[in-house]
Amino acid sequence: MLNILLLFLNFCKFGLLCFGGGYMLIPLLTAEFVGEGKLLTPERFGNLISISQLTPGPVGINTATFTGYISSGFPGSLAATLGLVFPTLLLAGAAMSFIIKFREHRVMKGILYGARLGAAALVFYAVLIFMELSLLTGPFDIGSIPAISPGALLITLSSFVLLKRFKWQTTWVILLSGVLGALLIPRIG
């Protein structure tokens, strides 16, 4: 029981420390759980991270559930996952109610105006990152530009056109992308 409580508190701490999303969990988890005499070997941790990234759902939730289960079974997975999102519930909830309350205030209007510009820039940035991750066969570098995967490029272009021009629902675009990927990518790369 103490074990489960400690797991919950540990993941609460991770939830408070990971700025900028689930990938920030990896160094935090490594320090806490990976190594000699600890819960996971580096190899098993590597597998756990790649399964968490390949499985649908937020990477942070996947990783927390997995680590919690390995640590103490079902109660552990529940404690780790709830611990991870508990600080978010309080912090993001409080931040949003603050924004709603002072929305019409002059200072808040300036803040939101700037925040939206920053957010737009980060969305453009996300597009570039996703292009690098999904279209290229290796990380981008000016010195050695990696090859483009033709199958992935075809899927990206068709999903853009299906959503923008033909007003498809995102659900169907994502499912079609998965089917096309299974058919095309093992064959043409």
Binding site: L54, V123, F130, A152, T156, K164, S177, G178, A182, I185
Partner: peptide, 24 residues
């Protein structure tokens, strides 16, 4: 095939985000 399907979904999501970014 499993890895291909996941790579396909990631590529599809790239197109969706690009469309959203366009509008934003």
């Amino acid at each position: 095939y499993w890895l291909g399907a996941f790579a396909g979904i990631r590529a599809g999501v790239t197109g969706l985000i690009a469309a959203t970014a366009w509008k934003i």
